[in-house]
Design a protein around this nucleic acid. Structure first.
Lengths: 413, 413
DNA sequence: AGGCTTTTTTTCGAGCCTCGAAAAAATACT
DNA sequence: AGTATTTTTTCGAGGCTCGAAAAAAAGCCT
């Protein structure tokens, strides 16, 4: 089954450990790296000396705080920004955004574009995505040769290998192999990631204290999505990106969901569902798009008077609560981050949510389950894509040593 | 975060690979092992020569089928039965069973006992478990020194490290650290495993073709349990054994569940729930124990006439179907094995189950989801415990080389 | 029967890798 | 300026895997 460890894998893995330690810690000294990896000082010394020679790491001036101690001061190691670059492409409803990010994680270029994703034919949609990347790669200011990875993120379902968009609410089109398309066009390795998974990855980097080994990111937007990290690893389905929390069944045969089925959590907690309920429309009413501004107005009204608007949020909370309860029955409770427009209305959702979750087996100690909110999902998705792409470069390219790098490598003797 | 690879880990890991390959394949030749592990012939030769010298493996006579080919015949390597032994203890409702299993996986001794688990005080329950083990270890026919691991399985929730029984339907007692108790008493490393997880492990070994990377084992008995294998690995919760499929919410505020809450899948599909429904009792009626014979009679009656009995099974199927639908939304569909008394009544359950699952997002291709049934759970649980314990011996004891083994080692120079 | 072919297994030297100890480097303290 | 302290590098030892070649153990062929 799983394959044995060859002798050359050893160095590769330990180089990867060092890179990972540096990316996580920022500017760790060799001694710190030795401590976190458990490898000997001599090994760290050898590996970091190689990595510096190859132009992947650079020594940074000793941190000023260290001056208090006696002894030889530690010298920090940092990722060399010019060692490589990655490109992120995020496709969401009527909106396409791109960023170029250096190896140290800084944004060095970006571009955004509105487009009518719902009605675009297949060729045009793909064409726009390729064009925005090409424009940036053609930029003479950019060292094109150093772009080592493209990570595309999309709202919707992708396959478990992160290569193909299987289905998305932003377009009627299905099964677009974006990763293959990008790779063929630009000759740069690419992935097609699920938006909520990338949100989770970003949270892990933003707040590793709170979001480390086990947590849940839930997107409360038009639809309901989820990114799940268990035991420090992104959880995906066996075939698709999985984690379709929004389509767990809340009430069998219940309200009509955007997916065409009935009773999904989303059919009670998605923006369209809250809107439909607040407007006292039938649960069978066809889902409609609701703008962010309208949702904010709805939330304001719900806060003001105890009418159908407030009841709509209450029902959304109930659906989310029972859904989370079922999820917690499977994985045990974990911290939750609520992301998206309706996360700004979490005050309206939370009471019913907690009440519902307390009625479930998974929510036994519902008070100890903590929620955090973040109304803006796009920056998170981009950050997640960036970190995904960068760690790929760390683990799969730079860890392997001997690779022809055109960008920063040219200065090396 | 994760730790670097030391030089000495290399050998350990590769020895573990070889042992795993031999356990999986039965009597593979060195050449076959080299092929499956990807290691070189020289390495396999060196490692297997060590393992033979240490009394862990033994050469077996060349297989007769190979005689057709030219060339030097392959010589098979097999696990040496005397290299070690493990003990399994399975505790279920009013029933305690033990088995001693040799390193090659053959049962070499067993004992079973009835006891009144529901009313036994804490000390007695623990005492019975210790006593049954002690009796076997005191057996003069048994080479006690070679017992390298005890795996205990219990119906109920265990912690994610497989050390403590947190809760079980077979006793009102909670939080019994059986693993620690056994270790302290006998000085042999022990674990406390969840029954459904062990069913899943056993299926993986019984039919690796069907149950390999992704599958689900569901226990249809008094309660509803689940063991889940994803990407080849047993899935557990973050704190508990997790996978409490039976307590996902089917109908918010619905029928009374044994767990005291309402609307759980189990409150519709557990034996007591089917019985309650067939007897036209209220959904609020307190759950009662139903014997296996009674359940078989109920199933027979349901097959005979289209009355409340058949309807009860239909409702059970519906609950299981919507529950599976929600589960599949999270992990994507996978093969399912139905285990336990009510698996023998799966013909009564299946139609409604398929109908329900077809109404869910996860069950889009409900016809392609395949079900298998196995009415007897106890043998599976024992097998799972045995394989768990044996692979522990492979990976954690024998893989590390230099260890003082009393049993088979004494013949080594 | 004896030599030849084929396949499996072992042997042997080369090349890496990590480790521990000791040396070197760089700073604060006295 | 010398000493103590801490970090980093150097160096030799020991292990591990690998590839190539040799050895072993059959069947095949004349």
């Amino acid at each position: 089954m799983s394959v044995g460890i060859r002798h050359d894998d050893l160095r590769r893995r330990n180089r990867a450990m060092v890179l990972s330690a540096v990316r996580r810690a920022g500017q760790p000294s060799r001694t710190e790296i030795a401590a976190t990896t458990g490898l000997s000082h001599s090994t760290i010394s050898a590996i970091s000396s190689d990595l510096i020679q190859e132009g992947i790491l650079a020594e940074s001036k000793p941190s000023e705080t260290a001056s208090l101690k006696r002894g030889r001061p530690q010298v920090g190691l940092a990722l060399k920004p010019e060692a490589a670059a990655v490109v992120t492409v995020v496709l969401s409803l009527n909106f396409l955004s791109l960023a170029v990010i250096d190896y140290a994680g800084q944004v060095i270029a970006e571009e955004q574009r509105r487009l009518d994703t719902l009605t675009m034919p297949r060729n045009e949609l793909i064409g726009e995505c390729l064009a925005i990347v090409r424009r940036r790669l053609d930029d003479p200011d950019l060292d094109v040769g150093s772009v080592a990875r493209i990570a595309m993120g999309i709202q919707g379902i992708t396959d478990s290998h992160a290569r193909t968009m299987l289905w998305s609410p932003i377009t009627p089109l299905t099964d677009i192999p974006f990763a293959d398309i990008l790779e063929k066009e630009f000759g740069i390795p690419a992935t097609m990631e699920n938006d909520c998974n990338m949100m989770a990855v970003a949270l892990q980097w933003r707040d590793p204290h709170r979001y480390r080994d086990n947590f849940i990111a839930i997107l409360l937007s038009h639809g309901i999505g989820m990114g799940l990290v268990l035991k420090g690893e992104l959880f995906t389905g066996t075939h698709s990106s999985g984690g379709e929390f929004g389509h767990m069944i809340h009430r069998p045969g219940g309200a009509l969901c955007r997916c065409g089925r009935r009773g999904c959590v989303e059919a009670y907690a998605g923006n369209y569902a809250i809107w439909r309920s607040a407007m006292k429309m039938s649960e069978d009413a066809e889902p409609v798009d609701v703008g962010d501004a309208d949702m904010r107005a709805l939330a304001a009204k719900a806060r003001e008077t105890d009418g159908p608007e407030r009841e709509a949020y209450r029902r959304a909370g109930e659906a989310l609560g029972f859904g989370l309860g079922s999820l917690f029955a499977l994985i045990d409770p974990a911290p939750v981050a609520m992301v998206g427009v309706s996360a700004a209305a979490f005050d309206l959702i939370e009471p019913a949510l907690r009440e519902a979750i307390a009625q479930t087996a998974g929510g036994q100690h519902s008070n100890s389950i903590s929620f955090d909110t973040e109304p803006n999902e796009l920056p998170l998705i981009r950050e997640g894509c960036a970190m995904r792409a960068l760690t790929f470069v760390d683990q799969e390219i730079f860890a392997s040593g001997v690779q022809a790098r055109s960008g920063a490598g040219k200065n090396v003797a």
